[in-house]
Structure formats: structure tokens, C-alpha cells
């Protein structure tokens, strides 16, 4: 399970839209299964098909989280023309089995946002709970 506030969802979608035509990306800072902060990053891969978090943003975010008693608990990125599901590239490069990997798909008019755990090449979708939006959370739990 990953718990996020509606402002976090909006921040991830806004990052994805701003990055168009490229994939957008960023990091999730928080505690275990709760997002406290979304940190957008430039996509240094500068590509519509791949992404890479800016190494400077990565280091600063780890330090910033540590100072605040938090952790980097995951990452998000967008798929501009495919579903919100990890690709083989995502799986091959998923660095941390304890992380939450959020995918934002802009492929359809209705933006889709999903979260996954990736362990040893196995993809498991997890429940996304949008705090304060019971209706949306319930749809996600289907």
C-alpha cells in the first residue's frame, strides 16, 4: 500500500505534463508507505521513451530526506503513450525492492496513476490510497 495526498498526485501529473513530449520523473520522500513530499526531477535522459532522475537531484533529495528524519521511499515517472505499468526497462533498472514505483500514464484522456513494488524482476501492483478522497481510493482498491 502507498498512501498519498491529492496534492502529491497533482504534482506527479503536473510533472508528467510539463515534461511532454518526454517522460517526466521524480522522487517520493516519506515514511515507509506514506508519501510526505514529491520531488520533481529533470529527465536527464531527455527522451520520450526512457527517463533518468538527475543525479544532483538524487543526492540532494537523499540528504534533504535524512535531515528531515524521512527517507526516499520511491520514484515516479510517466509513460506518454503506454499504460501505467512497469516496462521491462523499468523492471531491469529498478534499484530497490523496498521502493514504491509510481507510474503515470498520459496515454488516455483520463490520466492513470498506479503504484508497484518490483522485487527480483517480479511486478506487484499495490493499493494506492488517496488520503481524503475515499471515492478515488475505493476505485483503486478494485
Amino acid at each position: 500500500m502507498l498512501r498519498i495526498q491529492s496534492e502529491h498526485r497533482e504534482a506527479m501529473i503536473a510533472t508528467a505534463i510539463r515534461a511532454l513530449p518526454n517522460e517526466g520523473c521524480g522522487l517520493l520522500v516519506g515514511r515507509s508507505d506514506e508519501v510526505v513530499e514529491v520531488v520533481p526531477s529533470p529527465n536527464v535522459a531527455d527522451s520520450a521513451r526512457v527517463y533518468e532522475i538527475d543525479p544532483g537531484v538524487l543526492l540532494r533529495t537523499f540528504r534533504h530526506a535524512e535531515v528531515g528524519g524521512l527517507e526516499v521511499i520511491g520514484a515516479f515517472h510517466s509513460h506518454t503513450h503506454s499504460a501505467a505499468h512497469p516496462s521491462p526497462t523499468d523492471v531491469a533498472q529498478a534499484p530497490d525492492p523496498s521502493w514504491h514505483y509510481v507510474l503515470v500514464s498520459l496515454a488516455d484522456a483520463a490520466t492513470d496513476l498506479r503504484s508497484f513494488r518490483i522485487t527480483g524482476g517480479e511486478i506487484v501492483e499495490e493499493v494506492l490510497v488517496f488520503e481524503g478522497e475515499e471515492g478515488h481510493a475505493a476505485r483503486r482498491r478494485r
Partner: peptide, 29 residues
């Protein structure tokens, strides 16, 4: 980031702090 310094030849001196972080990357490709 040592890629913008000297890569593997980047000098290390006493009391430097070296941090390793796996790149966060992927994509729809």
C-alpha cells in the same frame, strides 16, 4: 558527481565523503 570530475581518476583526499547511489532510471522503451 564524479562523472563531471575525473570519473575513476577523480582524486580522493582525507576526510572526503564518498556517496554511492544507484541511478533511478527506466522508461516505456
Amino acid at each position: 558527481d564524479v562523472r563531471y570530475l575525473g570519473g575513476l581518476d577523480t582524486p580522493v583526499t582525507d576526510h572526503d565523503e564518498i556517496t554511492l547511489l544507484p541511478a533511478v532510471a527506466g522508461g516505456s522503451q
